[in-house]
């Protein structure tokens, strides 16, 4: 036993000859049945930007997930085939490969592979069907070869389309915002950003800390670093509902069948949030200032409102500081050149 300990310790010390900082993020999980490859990623990127997946070849993934907007579209709700409006705001894709809990605002997909299958057949998104899409892809010699290269024999099917799109989306990694650079010691916050940072992370509740007495903005309970989401479903007080059945959009409840989930939506990640306006699951808020004002108010009553959504008492300077901090989450290198 002691011998084993010695071997392990020697190996450990050998691997620790340099004082490495911990990695910024936990490693992306690559599914065993869909390991990423260069060919798979290239195919996924090609599919992502190709309207071939829609019924009339007018809508691609990138029609709503526009790279320059951190893979959102600037609209309140997505607009799909023939101008049909959807019901939800387009979620961003920043660092989506790191998430391991259900995706979409309502959590209807367990992972990226299955998420990618949904829009094709949704009438207000791509408005088609997989049978037609697969037929078109099989008829295209270039795609047939690309699928062969990426996945080997077996041809083209919806599962492989989903896998290729998932592989591409796992490359959408943002790690060079000012927030990241400050953490790495490569930059410093302005006084306003530093105040916003302290508000965001509730530094004010440390009676012995430098920010003692500062109000707490309660943000990080749900918008938890490093990706600024807890990947869970919350009611953030957007709508008043004395009766939970009164929510016009049941959100997570429509998927779980649990009435106590009505009005709950997946907490979005905030990386690049300044690029992803408008905000909330239905895009009802045009600016980050409106968002901060909402949370400062404590939101509207429903018995499943998150206990962490409460009146904050932030003054104008503090609200502006919070917005300034949120702007430090922008990674211009992430959106440039895609």
């Amino acid at each position: 036993m002691r011998g084993w300990c010695g071997i392990f310790l020697l190996l450990w010390l050998a691997c620790n000859d340099a004082p490495d900082a911990p990695p910024e993020f936990a490693a992306i999980l690559y599914p065993a049945d869909n390991p990423s490859t260069a060919a798979g990623i290239a195919l996924g990127e090609r599919l992502f930007f190709d309207p071939v997946l829609s019924a009339d070849s007018t809508i691609s993934c990138a029609s709503c997930h526009r790279p320059e907007r951190a893979f959102t579209d600037g609209r309140s709700v997505a607009v799909g085939l023939a101008g049909r409006p959807g019901i939800r705001n387009t979620p961003g894709l920043t660092n989506i490969g790191y998430f391991h809990h259900p995706l979409f605002w309502d959590g209807r997909a367990d992972n990226l592979e299955t998420q990618a299958l949904h829009p094709v057949g949704t009438p207000h998104e791509m408005g088609g069907d997989w049978q037609s899409v697969v037929a078109r892809l099989r008829a295209d010699a270039g795609y047939a070869e690309a699928f062969q290269t990426a996945f080997g024999a077996g041809g083209t099917d919806s599962i492989r389309v989903g896998r290729a799109l998932a592989q591409y989306q796992r490359t959408l990694v943002s790690r060079d915002s000012k927030y990241d650079r400050v953490r790495r010691g490569e930059a410093t916050y302005t006084p306003q950003e530093a105040l916003g940072h302290a508000l965001f992370f509730d530094f004010g509740d440390d009676p012995g800390g430098a920010w003692a007495g500062l109000p707490t903005a309660e943000c990080a309970h749900c918008h938890t670093p490093p990706h600024f989401t807890n990947e869970r479903f919350e009611n953030n007080g957007l709508d008043a509902a004395d009766d939970l059945a009164a929510f016009t959009d049941p959100g997570r409840g429509a998927i779980s069948g649990n009435p106590y989930d009505y009005g709950r939506f997946r907490t979005p990640g905030l990386r690049n949030v300044a690029l992803t306006a408008p905000y909330m699951h239905d895009g009802r808020m045009a600016t980050l200032e409106e968002v901060v004002d909402h949370y400062n108010s404590g939101g509207h009553y429903a018995e499943n409102r998150s206990p962490n959504v409460r009146p904050l008492g932030l003054d104008a300077e503090q609200r502006e500081a919070l917005v300034a901090f949120l702007n430090t989450l922008t990674d211009s290198t992430f959106v440039a050149g895609r």
């Binding site: 911990p22 936990a26 999980l29 790191y98």
Partner: peptide, 12 residues
Amino acid sequence: SNFPADYVLNEN
């Protein structure tokens, strides 16, 4: 970040 993304210490 020292652990896999789905490790129990990565539950945010």
